[in-house]
Amino acid sequence: MAIKTIGKHCKGCGVCVTFCPKQVLGLDALGKITVLDETKCITCKQCEMRCPDYAIFVEKK
């Protein structure tokens, strides 16, 4: 599994952080999406589905 984030697209709304059931995601000092602990990801893809800015993609490998 791989989480790909696109900082250029992210506006820091925090929707992905709220809906992530495993606290994998967070916002960095600039308010952009950052992956805190990829190993906890269960590939539910809630973040990808809810991101209004197409800034996060989760791929099952």
Partner: peptide, 22 residues
């Protein structure tokens, strides 16, 4: 899908958290 159906002009202008992107 973004590669196939979107024009290469992202990010969009909608406000942070706007549901229009969804």
């Amino acid at each position: 899908l973004i590669e196939k159906y979107y024009r290469p002009r992202l990010p969009h202008i909608w406000c942070p958290g706007c549901g229009n992107g969804i």
